[in-house]
């Protein structure tokens, strides 16, 4: 599934992001399953590292910091940010106002 250019451009990797509170995450051996109770949409996260990145968001002050925290190699950053952008596009990730690290 190609990501729309708009989503990548509008996703602010330097801002803090949180998983929306109505999204449940279930770790799986292939990555994770996300279920959004608002849209009843099931999303497969087919990558255990991405799952860790999503986990790290709540304690990071930006999406980029979450990547660093999980030690995603620099050359993979764009791909991971695209995946996060896709989650933000479907509002499963929501921007968190600065400061309130949970």
């Amino acid at each position: 599934m190609a990501l729309t250019a708009v989503a990548v451009e509008t996703f602010d990797a330097d801002s803090p992001w949180d998983l929306h509170e109505s999204v449940s995450v279930r770790p799986e051996r292939f990555g994770a399953l996300l279920y959004d109770f608002r849209t009843r949409r099931l999303t497969f996260v087919k990558d255990p590292v991405l799952q860790k990145v999503i986990d790290a968001l709540s304690t990071s002050s930006s999406a980029r910091e979450a990547l660093a925290l999980v030690k995603v190699p620099q050359e993979d950053h764009e791909r991971y940010l695209s995946a996060l952008a896709r989650l933000a596009e479907t509002s499963m990730l929501t921007p968190r106002s600065q400061g309130e690290i949970t």
């Binding site: 599934m1 990501l3 999303t43 497969f44 087919k46 990558d47 791909r79």
Partner: peptide, 15 residues
């Protein structure tokens, strides 16, 4: 029921 077409894989990872 409910396990339906809208599934979105974060497949932007799979080049």
């Amino acid at each position: 029921a409910g396990f339906d077409p809208n599934e979105v894989a974060v497949s932007s990872l799979s080049r």
